[in-house]
Design a protein around this nucleic acid. Structure first.
Lengths: 219, 219
DNA sequence: CATCCGGAAATCCGATCGGATTCGCTAGGC
DNA sequence: GCCTAGCGAATCCGATCGGATTTCCGGATG
């Protein structure tokens, strides 16, 4: 198979092919290169990526499991439609619940390295974002770091799944990184570094409620 | 692990083959016909089920996404090890959070049909279980019905994923269906039928705390 | 003019092939 | 006796093939 030699720079033999294909399609989905509702035919993707259908099907199966594409038997795959307003509200509600728990757990279990990581992210969030999209990416990393610092693997896994959809739902809404947001973030980190689970949970709750208020109306 | 070979009976063309294969392997996993840590080789499964490797791979990819099997590139699949004690605690913690939310939402959004369904399940739980394993199955259906009655699709999806692991972790622990458990269940349903979210959440919380206490020590 | 029908193209789906890698076992050397 | 090298079998992985189904489009008919 001569494919994947010339084109994909990151198609080194160490990382399995379905994984790279998955990453590519996922990237196309979150960047809206593939719009919601678009058809995803197996062999046109195979042609595009210069690989056979087998890795494509594997990647699509994975994406289906994450709820990013939907399959209809003998009719192919489609990119899922954007979340409806009520679904988005539900997503935010579940997210709020899990993020609060994550903050609480992080306050109880975070190590010094975790706190350092959060401090570092705070600084990067403060610094003027070089490219558009950086703010969203850093914000995602910030919440990811908290979930990781919780030390709760199951919680982390659940939040990770939500974050994909959350990101998808608010692409091109690029909320301006205001001073207000920075202060909210700093309060959360402070509560975690103080190992105060009550305050951490409250700070996270407040942050998400405010995020919702900032987003509401746009959706 | 000799999977049963008698399965082609339900290979009707209406239900896609990868789906039935997935169901079979999933069933073998939850019934421990495939033990944790067992290897799952693609073509021995293909031989056992009398199908080609393609549907097998698809099913395994799905199962990997749900965290039931793990894949090592070029080394095949294995059934995931049983959850460790701390992981199980984490699972229960996350479950508690989400189930509380589900009960709360159910109290706010459940329709009369949902309540009827719950009442019906209560009766079945009361009735002497015909076969061993029925109690566990009914309990799962009960919690599933509440999650569904919440009307929150995202919450439901997250809880469903947890329930698979929860079931796996407590197979062959078959807690006796005591009167105490029945009363806890009835209190939850009553709170939901009263549309009292505060009480519903509290009742669910209490129920899960008590479940934990009943299981603790066995793990 | 709308509806139904039919055939061709596109697509999915399952099966199978060949190369590449890993694992297991045996034989040989220290 | 133990460790190591090497050979063979098993396995995974990607590619490709052929059948089955769906979809699309044009034309015929009431």
């Amino acid at each position: 198979m001569t494919a994947s030699l010339t084109q994909l720079a990151f198609a080194d033999s160490t990382s399995p092919l379905p994984e790279t294909i998955y990453q590519r399609i996922l990237d196309d989905l979150v960047t809206q290169a593939i719009a919601p509702g678009d058809r995803l035919t197996v062999d046109s993707l195979a042609r595009d990526y210069q690989v056979s259908q087998t890795p494509i099907r594997q990647a699509l199966t994975r994406l289906e499991g994450e709820g990013l594409v939907e399959k209809h038997h003998l009719r192919g795959y489609r990119a899922c439609e954007r979340l409806s307003r009520p679904q988005f509200e539900q997503l935010f509600a579940v997210r709020a619940i899990l993020e609060r728990a994550a903050a609480q757990w992080a306050a109880l279990h975070a190590g010094t390295d975790d706190v350092d990581r959060l401090q570092e992210l705070l600084e990067q969030l403060r610094s003027p974002s070089s490219r558009p999209g950086d703010a969203v990416r850093l914000d995602a990393q910030f919440h990811d770091a908290i979930a990781r610092a919780s030390g709760n693997e199951i919680l982390y896994a659940n939040l990770s799944r939500l974050h994909v959809h959350l990101h998808l739902a608010r692409v091109q809404r690029e909320s301006p990184a205001t001073e207000e947001v920075h202060q909210e973030h700093e309060l959360i980190v402070q509560a975690i570094s103080w190992k105060d689970p009550i305050l951490a949970e409250a700070a996270m709750f407040s942050h998400i409620e405010r995020s919702w208020a900032r987003l509401d109306g746009d959706i």
